[in-house]
């Protein structure tokens, strides 16, 4: 196995694992604002790693540039989309839950959460 293949495999495997981590975090985190962080995990590190792993496997062509464009696009749009969601949630009367939320049995539906899902 050449060095290029090895790097590509490592990128793909680590990227896939981090992708799963983000998905699990999305389910495990206690409130909306913490879930945003978990979602950011998949977009800021898993997506670049997977795309870099793909780029290392591809032949030298224009397609390489396109993958790079996708990568730049994801990284450039992610903060804007994340901020838009957080701001919309705040303005929609959705307060962050603070303090120690490690205990999963505390997960209870807020009244405001229920009302905003009826739209």
């Amino acid at each position: 196995m050449s060095l290029l293949e090895l790097t590509s495999t490592a990128c793909l495997v680590v990227g896939g694992a981090l992708c799963l981590t983000g998905g699990v975090g999305l389910l495990r985190m206690p409130d909306f604002f913490s879930r945003v962080h978990a979602a950011g995990l998949t977009e800021t590190i898993a997506a670049p790693l997977l795309l870099i792993g793909l780029m290392l496997q591809m032949d030298w062509s224009l397609d390489l540039f396109k993958v790079l464009m996708i990568l730049v696009l994801i990284l450039a749009t992610n903060p804007t989309a994340t901020h838009a969601m957080a701001k919309a949630a705040l303005h929609g009367g959705h307060q962050p839950r603070l303090g120690d939320l490690s205990n999963p049995s505390e997960q209870d539906g807020h009244a405001e959460e229920d009302s905003s899902s009826k739209a």
Partner: peptide
């Protein structure tokens, strides 16, 4: 953050 997701012992204490 990845460690925080996988390890239940690490606290999740959001601050705003």
């Amino acid at each position: 953050l990845a460690l925080r997701v996988w390890n239940p012992k690490l606290p999740i204490r959001p601050v705003w």
